[in-house]
Design a protein around this nucleic acid. Structure first.
Lengths: 228, 228
DNA sequence: GTGTTAATGTACTGAACGTTACAGTTCATT
DNA sequence: AATGAACTGTAACGTTCAGTACATTAACAC
């Protein structure tokens, strides 16, 4: 029976966080940042439990002492890494819907939006983040919520603002923009994303993602278009 | 600094499966079944990596020798457990849409269906399964696919059969029933399920799930109802 | 009953992991 | 240049775990 590769895993304090000391030195700051970067790679690649601090440390060349200096524990490192990713996500997520000319064709605006959203959510980093957060949601409830708010919820808010404005302008019939936003997102992003989360290609063999998006936008508009 | 509870984790062979011997004795069968049951609890509770075989064994009172006799490895045990759950899922999932009287109001049929689907997908076991599968999709691609086919995909197939029959009967305008089925499922089940996967309650404070479902069904029908 | 095979219990191995202690090094300030 | 604080490297500790060896016990066939 061929032994393949004994991987080990471990952790301790389920949720201890003695005030994380901030580096007071330039070198310290760099180390801290580098650790977070490496932690992102390792944690998102292997998941929290399987990831090992030694591997993180090895990748940046530092030493474990720094990890415990700055983050206090494996969980602390994970938490800071996720928080950092969330912040980055918020900073980078300039959603459309406001950018376009106000009079632009709603169907085109929504289709563009759909493409953007899907592209964003299918990025490997996002998929990995989602995987990690779903896997550890029970162990890090506050992190999961933070992630949800930085990602999905923020997208919903921006979209529903757009829908509301269109409703008020009379372009759409959208009396409940929050729910409509949810439904639009569901129609557009769920299917390919779910497949990706399960490790499959976003669309089944031979089916076209963009066509799928057009279909979704059309269905959505059938329910919201001014025409009743 | 209070040490809390050093949890350990481990595993080895990424995907070894020497033909799993089937028990030849009554007692063996029982042990095997009991092991799978306990494995389900532990794995779904803790995730693959964190779960420990010793804990599984302790719960059923057997010994590790049996585990390695029947399943060959931790991964083997996990795989058999998932497969077993999938089979059980298929057996128990008698989907509606066929049961109802053929002339029943489509909106009512779909709403009932929606309620059933959501109830099924929000069951704690299902959420835990989903979590586990998403978390380990990269390590067990064939399992993830199997799960996807036993669960989501099967639901889609049944629903699209119903939609097709309604289309042919002229009750609905549904030229692409597969995609329509996907979209119906997306509208209906995604949002609460995603929230649950992230460890949050299915609907935000004060919002009503059933009302959400009605809204979704109505939107779906606006796009499919015979009326163009 | 007796003998053969399957199943189990015990106890161990070796390795990996999170965490810490400590000594050495680099940095910032004066 | 000196001094104290922040930082880092090394090496270890204690624990946990998957997997194994082997002797014992239960099940079955005759």
């Amino acid at each position: 029976m061929p032994k393949v590769k004994p991987q080990r895993i471990a952790e301790t304090r389920p949720a201890k966080a003695p005030p994380p000391p901030v580096p007071a030195t330039r070198r310290g700051e760099l180390r801290r940042a580098a650790l977070i970067d490496a932690a992102r790679d390792i944690f998102l690649e292997q998941g929290f439990a399987r990831a090992s601090i030694d591997e993180v440390v090895q990748r940046v060349g530092g030493s474990k002492a720094s990890v415990y200096q700055y983050f206090g524990s494996k969980e602390g490192l994970f938490g800071e890494m996720i928080a950092h990713q969330c912040q980055q996500l918020i900073d980078s997520a300039e959603f459309p819907g406001r950018g376009g000319a106000p009079g632009a064709d709603v169907e085109q605006v929504l289709l563009q939006f759909a493409r953007r959203v899907v592209q964003l959510f299918l990025a490997p980093v996002r998929i990995a983040m989602h995987r990690a957060m779903i896997a550890e949601a029970e162990r890090f409830p506050e992190l999961a919520e933070r992630f949800y708010e930085a990602g999905p919820k923020r997208g919903l808010a921006l979209l529903s603002a757009y829908l509301r404005s269109q409703h008020e302008a009379g372009t759409l019939d959208c009396p409940k923009p929050e729910w409509s936003a949810i439904q639009f997102m569901n129609l557009v992003r769920t299917y390919p994303m779910f497949r990706a989360l399960h490790g499959m290609p976003p669309m089944p063999e031979g089916e076209d993602l963009d066509e799928f998006l057009q279909h979704a936008v059309r269905l959505f508009l059938d329910g919201c278009r001014i025409k009743r």
